[in-house]
Amino acid sequence: MIKISPSMLAADFANLEQEITAVQLAGADMLHIDVMDGHFVPNITFGPDVVKSLRSKTDLLFDVHLMIKYPLQYIGAFAKAGADIITIHYEAADDVRETIGQIHALGKKAGLSVKPGTPVEEIYGFLPMLDMALIMTVEPGFGGQSFMRDMLPKISSLKQKILDGSLHMDIEVDGGIDRNTAKEVIGAGANVLVSGSALFKQKDYKKAIEELRATSASAAL
């Protein structure tokens, strides 16, 4: 099943509650919430208090992507705030295994992400512990960037490794996802699409999500 996770980084920050309601009614499967600290990436966005305030506004699954240094220090705060999936970066965690273990200990699903410059093989040893792996197809930090097509082999390689290990986990892709690139990443093996600018710039969110699904479904055949 192809899952659509609208990136709140591209939403109207002055009207987040309305934006969340709109994408939920439009058929989104979850909400992708990018947390940036201004250190690991050159931008600052949401903190646990914002996640907590949004939690009461929807029952959609919160797909929280921590683009921060020292994520272990903040797992508890985001779990308490209402995150359902907490994804950390391989490059940011001092102890990846311990951090993943803490996420699970708090009853949350765990994801692990790699930047474009990091070989996907770096996370293969952690796959049995994960619920999701996130491949970045832009440099993390800002929305609206162009899709990096040379990341497609990473997705294919990761998918094959998951199949070889008979693992059950999602492959999420974030960065420059629209109707055209969605078909490519699904064809490579992904099943969770993070869409920001390509979705929120449309007047009709429902139509935008349906088009992503239709394109993705044809690619998955």
Rank of each mutant, 00 (worst) to 15 (best):
K69F: 09
P71S: 02
P71H: 04
P71K: 05
L72F: 02
L72R: 13
K80M: 08
G82M: 00
D84P: 01
I85E: 02
I85R: 08
I85A: 03
I85F: 15
I85M: 13
I86V: 10
T87P: 13
H89V: 08
Y90R: 05
Y90A: 05
Y90G: 07
A93D: 06
D94Y: 07
R97H: 12
E98T: 12
E98Y: 07
T99C: 14
G101E: 13
I103W: 04
A105L: 05
G107N: 15
K108C: 11
K108H: 09
A110D: 11
G111C: 05
L112Y: 10
S113C: 14
K115N: 15
P119Q: 12
P119S: 13
V120W: 01
V120I: 10
E121T: 10
E122N: 13
Y124V: 03
Y124P: 10
G125F: 07
F126A: 13
L127Y: 05
M129L: 15
M129W: 05
L130M: 06
M132C: 07
A133D: 04
A133Y: 05
A133G: 03
A133C: 08
L134F: 12
L134C: 04
I135R: 06
V138Q: 07
G141D: 09
G141P: 01
G143Q: 08
G143T: 11
M148D: 09
R149K: 15
D150W: 15
M151H: 03
L152G: 03
P153Q: 04
P153M: 08
P153D: 11
K159Q: 10
Q160A: 11
L163T: 06
D164C: 00
G165V: 00
S166T: 07
L167E: 04
H168K: 14
H168D: 15
D170M: 09
I171K: 02
E172L: 06
E172C: 14
V173Y: 01
D174I: 01
G175R: 02
G176P: 08
I177L: 09
I177S: 11
R179H: 13
A182H: 01
K183T: 04
E184D: 15
E184H: 05
I186Q: 09
I186L: 10
G187R: 01
L193C: 03
V194I: 10
V194A: 01
S197A: 06
